[in-house]
Design a protein around this nucleic acid. Sequence first.
DNA 1: TGTACATCAGTGAACGCGCGTTCACTGATGTAC
DNA 2: TGTACATCAGTGAACGCGCGTTCACTGATGTAC
Lengths: 198, 198
Amino acid sequence: VPKKKPYHHGDLSSRLLEVTAEVIDDVGVAGLSLREVARRAGVSHGAPAHHFGDKRGLLTAFATQGFARFGDALEAARCSEDSGNALQRFEATGVAYVQFAVEHEAHFDVMFRPDLVDASDEAYAAASTRAYQQLLLAIQAAQAEGYAPGVDVETLAVAAWAKTHGLATLWLEGNLRNVTGYEDVSALARAVLALDKG
Amino acid sequence: VPKKKPYHHGDLSSRLLEVTAEVIDDVGVAGLSLREVARRAGVSHGAPAHHFGDKRGLLTAFATQGFARFGDALEAARCSEDSGNALQRFEATGVAYVQFAVEHEAHFDVMFRPDLVDASDEAYAAASTRAYQQLLLAIQAAQAEGYAPGVDVETLAVAAWAKTHGLATLWLEGNLRNVTGYEDVSALARAVLALDKG
DNA sequence: TGTACATCAGTGAACGCGCGTTCACTGATGTAC
DNA sequence: TGTACATCAGTGAACGCGCGTTCACTGATGTAC
């Protein structure tokens, strides 16, 4: 299948999203500007508006891309066949949550920011819902195998979400820098998430 | 004890901190500017620099104030005599964490932001350490009464912190808006934190 | 194959804006005698 | 009580900056015939 022959740049809108990640890595979300993104993409400062309308548009597309990849990562963990039972896969999904945040900090920093993003955007909503579904499915599977019998799924979901999201944000903000005794974030996440086994 | 007679305004630096909270409530941390703070305090735009040096200085003082109040709130919950045993007080401390975040959103939004704050500021470091101590003390007391025997305190602390911090941030960012069946955040927090009892 | 035309990606000048910071100053307050 | 002086809180003009957005445009690409 031959790629669509693009116009001038080739594939500017993808490239702008890549550059967005780089800029956020360098100067943070707050420091991101359309003009800097354009500059690094080697394109005039008006170009991004052509593809994304405005700054919010760019960030919405960026967050959507993040949620798509996030959903993939969670699904992969949830469906992994390495671990025998559903409870283990549930834990692995939680670890994947934290790992994704650390490995894709730029995306993660924008994904949950309704102040920066157009939350009513259809693609955005769909991608974030799909990611959340992975968490729910992992919990339901674990519960079907006897985990937390009789407890409301929604409550379990909030608990799992809070724990992983809290770990991720605390780590990214540098608040866990003093925690010793763990090789990396994943090891810490594994230890923390294993606590409420059974 | 008569109050110190102040200079012109009376107590401008306290007032500036109050106004900072109002501005953040209205336009978010990202939208905060020294000029707007000065404007709302009815003072020239150069005045804040006089008290706080620069923007980072203002935010550092604001975050420090937040941590001081936060520490008080956690300590009050940890030492509350309403609940009989240490495990209950540990849970109450967690609920207080979430409750503080929701009731003092402006402060909370700045407290954990090393990108906005001078983390090496002594008063800031002291206030945040003190708050963290409350969490540790609550856990140690619970453990002394048989909670999570043999588990590393640090791991327990990270788990508790992650859970409460995650709840708080998810709630504040509006991500738990769809969760039904709970009267308010505190009820949700209570349910979530009660899960890993025993 | 060649030509005329339509499309649309990207340009670059221009706009108006609010910001943080600096700095010489004013004038209110407190203090020494 | 009164006067001279020192302190310092707050003023306001000025600076230079980068930003988001708009818009008439250029010119490369694709298409119809």
